[in-house]
């Protein structure tokens, strides 16, 4: 298969090198708050992924008509519109999950990763690449959410996929795995401080892997232009 270099690069950037959760550290508020179970993490991750793709595609489509002075309010409008749509759809079709995600669903609007990608990538690139970038960035974010959710759920409750029926329907209640039975829940893992600590370990693990890879690679001086990415925190 011949995948253009650009897409490979986008995949690599979104999933690993420039991962919105682990490297850019954007959208930490929902990341830490809702990842107490895998199912919550999956729900929020998918919602964010969807919004990110839609907003990237739209921003890229309209880049010709948007003057740079008013681009930020327009991006915010677009993102807010998509988030509201997701919220309404979830309220209609995944009611219990909607209730358990609570305030963090509308808070996707304030996830800097989304407006960051709109500003840094989508507004300067064609639709195809922009949507793909949104997808990969969303996947990167989703994987971090899932990893955190899994770690915290196993440590905190001793289960995995608890409450999967909230997201996927009744059949999914069989997915619940009881890894070990706890008399008392391990509180630290469920509370936000536990999320910070787990997040710290995840970032550390990523850095260790990066260093290992860098050590293994023979040092070759190759001409290659660094692409500068501008990300801003809101």
């Amino acid at each position: 298969m011949n995948i253009p270099q650009e897409y490979k690069e986008l995949t690599w950037q979104g999933l690993w090198k420039n991962n919105p959760g682990l490297v850019q550290l954007l959208g930490l508020c929902p990341l830490l708050a809702v990842t107490s179970t895998v199912v919550n993490a999956l729900g929020l991750g998918l919602a964010t992924l969807f919004v990110l793709m839609c907003s990237n595609a739209t921003v890229s489509l309209i880049q010709k008509w948007v003057p740079k002075e008013i681009r930020i309010p327009i991006f915010v409008l677009i993102i807010a519109a998509f988030v509201t749509c997701v919220q309404l759809l979830m309220n209609a079709f995944a009611f219990s999950l909607y209730e358990s995600l609570g305030i963090f669903l509308p808070l996707i609007v304030t996830n800097c990763a989304i407006i960051g990608r709109a500003e840094a990538y989508a507004s300067k690139n064609p639709v195809k690449q922009a949507s793909f970038d949104g997808f990969m960035m969303g996947m990167g974010f989703l994987f971090v959410l899932l990893a955190l959710g899994a770690v915290r759920e196993v440590l905190g409750q001793g289960t995995l996929f608890d409450g999967a029926d909230l997201l996927l329907g009744q059949w999914a209640s069989n997915l619940r795995i009881e890894i070990f039975a706890l008399d008392n829940q391990f509180l630290l893992a469920i509370l936000p401080p536990g999320a910070f600590i787990a997040m710290g370990f995840l970032i550390a693990a990523k850095n260790v892997i990066d260093t290992k890879i860098a050590e293994k690679q023979p040092k070759v001086q190759d001409e290659h232009i660094e692409r500068v990415r501008v990300n801003f925190d809101s």
């Binding site: 008013i70 309010p73 327009i74 519109a81 749509c85 759809l89 309220n91 209609a92 079709f93 009611f95």
Partner: peptide, 30 residues
């Protein structure tokens, strides 16, 4: 710029209104 902003605001509101219209009954039912 003001016109453009207005157009985008209207378009986004229309989108949200449309989705609201589609989901309103289901939400009430839920």
């Amino acid at each position: 710029n003001a016109k453009l902003l207005a157009i985008f605001a209207i378009a986004c509101t229309a989108l949200v209104a449309f989705v609201d219209f589609l989901t309103r009954d289901t939400i009430a039912q839920q």
